[in-house]
Simulated assay, not measured.
Amino acid sequence: MEKNNQTTTTAEPGKKELIITREFNSPRELVWKAWTEPAMIKKWWGPKGYTCPSCEVDFKTGGKYFFCMRSPEGKDFWSTGIYKEIAPMERIVFTDSFADEKGNVVPATHYGMEGFPLELMVTVTFEDHNGNTKMTLKHIGIPTGEITDMTNVGWNESFDKLDESIK
């Protein structure tokens, strides 16, 4: 377990899940909007140095999202998923898949990566905590090992950007 800047990360050996808890010095409504409004998502989606040039959100149960994450070298990585559960201001559950530029689900090998299932599941919860917002992300299906470490870094760098975007 690693603690850094009000962040706790847990990745149990052999378990295909990553859990990240982060406390933001912002109201829950603002952290919620950062996950649900395209203009806000574009400000933080992707690790340090990455941008989000395209973000489409049909934010309802059964609705779809379709995001582009652009690397500093200009390579685009597309992702898509379906919102499975939305409990306003409390929880968002959605699938997570790699996609091509048209929104079709593709295997990770499309981007030169191995070992990912076609679909992963993400749950994000939001709680009031000591006047701040405690957000917990659970990413289920992540392959163990180096990919978990890279995913952990990517999410945490994204959350650093999220934090900056809501100050």
Rank of each mutant, 00 (worst) to 15 (best):
R28I: 02
K64G: 04
T123K: 06
N130C: 09
E90T: 15
T133N: 00
D58V: 01
N104M: 11
L118I: 09
V122G: 02
M69T: 08
K42Y: 06
T7A: 05
T10F: 06
R70W: 13
C68T: 11
Y50P: 04
W35A: 03
V93Y: 06
G63V: 03
T10G: 11
S54V: 11
S71L: 09
D163W: 08
P143I: 01
K42C: 07
D163L: 12
I86Q: 05
S54T: 13
I20P: 02
I41D: 00
R70M: 15
L120C: 10
W32A: 03
P88E: 07
P27M: 12
T61I: 15
K64A: 10
G63P: 00
F126D: 00
S26M: 14
M40G: 14
P72R: 02
N130P: 09
H110A: 11
G115A: 05
A99K: 08
V105Q: 02
K60E: 13
T7D: 03
K3M: 14
E90W: 06
K16H: 13
M1D: 03
I142R: 08
I19E: 08
C68E: 14
T151Y: 10
N4G: 13
T133L: 00
T36Q: 01
F126L: 02
G154Y: 02
I140D: 12
M150P: 12
K75F: 15
T144H: 06
K15S: 05
A87C: 15
E12H: 07
F67P: 00
P72V: 10
K16E: 12
F67A: 08
T10K: 14
V106L: 04
P27S: 10
G63S: 00
V93F: 06
A34Y: 03
I166L: 05
K138Y: 15
D149C: 12
K64C: 11
R91L: 08
N104G: 13
G112E: 01
A34W: 09
H129K: 15
I166Q: 04
C55T: 04
F94P: 08
E12L: 12
D58M: 03
K15N: 07
G115V: 00
Y111A: 04
W44P: 00
G154V: 08
D100I: 07
T36I: 05
M121Q: 11
S26L: 10
L18S: 04
V153Q: 13
F159I: 03
M121F: 14
V153E: 15
E101R: 13
N25G: 07
M89Y: 14
S79E: 15
W155V: 02
G115K: 03
M1V: 15
K42L: 04
R91E: 08
K60W: 04
P47N: 13
E114V: 04
Y83I: 00
M69H: 08
M121H: 12
V105P: 00
Y83W: 02
K138S: 13
S71W: 06
E164F: 11
V122A: 02
W44N: 05
G154A: 07
T133W: 07
V31I: 02
E146V: 13
K48M: 12
K102Q: 11
E157L: 10
F24D: 05
K60Y: 11
F66E: 06
M89P: 09
F66A: 05
H139V: 08
M113D: 05
P47W: 08
G49T: 07
E114M: 07
T8M: 13
